[in-house]
Amino acid sequence: MHIDREISPPFDASTVRTLRAGDLVALSGVVYTARDAAHKRLCELIERREPPPIDLRGQVIYFTGPSPAKPGRVIGSAGPTTSSRMDAYSPTVIRETGLRGMIGKGNRGKPVIEAMRRYGCVYFAATGGAGALIAKTILKADIMCYEDLGPEAIYRLEVKELPLVVAIDCHGNNVYSPAVLGL
């Protein structure tokens, strides 16, 4: 598959600024998983002025809840979940933790896009329903915290050449089709 660029987190603000909506990228390095329940906990900690359980400065969160790993495998199927369910939490997480990237599927709400512009964060789309393909790019998976949440726990994933599309960049450019954007 054609790839415009290879990237590796952690990102600084200037790297984020060079990523443009529509770019096909291959991401290698570390990403952290989190879905609704983990985001809720992160935001509760932030509200209580307590430190998050992982340092997210410059890091990327992947919205996924993998299926269990078979014996001898790193992980099960691990495609993206619908990002809009994280819209209630993402502006707070971006503002308070220094997060630089998110991976999911589907368009994001205005407050998220505004926070991405203001604090320098990029949103990547992975292909929904391609969990077996994406699993092949995951070399290592370790539970970091919230193990009680099962598939919603926060994992640290080491990935190699995870195929992504820059869906919304930190300048507010959006690659979703005009029909999706209501234009």
Partner: peptide
């Protein structure tokens, strides 16, 4: 192409097509 390759890999490796089973 990713969707098609994903279906092939899932069948071959007995990995769920999608993590949301």
């Amino acid at each position: 192409k990713q969707c098609m390759e994903n279906a092939r890999l899932a069948a071959e490796e007995r990995t769920p097509i999608c993590q949301d089973t």
